[in-house]
Design a protein around this nucleic acid. Structure first.
Lengths: 142, 142
DNA sequence: GCGAAACAGTCTCTATCTTAGACCAATCAT
DNA sequence: ATGATTGGTCTAAGATAGAGACTGTTTCGC
């Protein structure tokens, strides 16, 4: 049995079909937008890619590096990433098994775009927090 | 570090390169990375920002433009975006109420980064689909 | 030798989140 | 008067994420 092939771990739910009909505003051609967004849109995927930035990591190392993630979601996200060709998985049949995950060239090019987003986040984080305070204040007195 | 003393393939330390503030900050809402990612990580938020790209829209128009979204999630995502200062909400007390949502300058700067990600998606979509086929094939023949 | 720990996952149960869609009050077209 | 449109809110039901117990193997401490 191939790993994870039939358990309930990876629900293969049908993706939202908004790509097929579509308002021109988002959806000019096909819908690659869906493809990106559904993946970085996974709360953990982008974090994992970012974590693999400088060096490949093993499952447990990743689990420690992204503290809040559950093993289940880590496995699932890793699998999606592997499936899409953004990372590769190498199993070393050592004493205790070792599995190494590393970004593919495509994964690395994706990473660069993620990083530009991260840079934006770092720049704008103060402004965002300020906006939040203003918003809460306006709401409290309402 | 006792096992793997001779294998020694990978560092076992957690890299967390995406947390410039250190690992502790990740859990405390201080991490700007999490801040961005948790928001575009919302399946709908990025789509809304992209939809607002060229012109402000009213609630119903947005609802039509992003067909699969429920009113509830649209409202919620819009509120989050407003709260964070990425878009502004203007109510016109007309006959039937009209509410206009438009990107703030900060929202627009965020949009530009999103668009670079979308461009990446457009470029790499074929490769991703190819990778998926390979992956499925490899799995099927188990 | 025995129990524990670490490796990489997987499984189940439960908590949380999303969705669909009814509902609201006001106003306009038929 | 009926129904549609406006911008939402609320609730029940269904989908999803999270915690953590469990698997099986090997090496470590005692």
């Amino acid at each position: 049995m191939s790993r994870l092939s039939k358990g309930n771990l990876l629900p293969q739910t049908a993706p939202t079909p908004w790509a097929t009909l579509g308002p021109a505003s988002i959806n000019q051609g096909q819908c690659p937008v869906r493809d990106v967004l559904d993946h970085i849109g996974d709360k953990w995927t982008a974090l994992i890619v970012l974590t693999l930035k400088s060096s490949p990591s093993r499952f447990s190392a990743l689990h420690r590096a992204v503290p809040d993630i559950s093993k289940r979601m880590l496995t699932q996200s890793l699998r999606n990433l592997e499936r899409d060709g953004l990372l590769s998985r190498h199993v070393f049949p050592t004493k205790p098994p070792a599995v190494e995950y590393r970004l593919t060239p495509m994964g690395q090019s994706f990473l660069r775009h993620l990083e530009s987003l991260v840079a934006w986040a770092e720049e704008n984080h103060p402004a965002v927090r300020e906006a939040r305070l203003r918003f809460e204040a306006a709401n409290d007195e309402g």
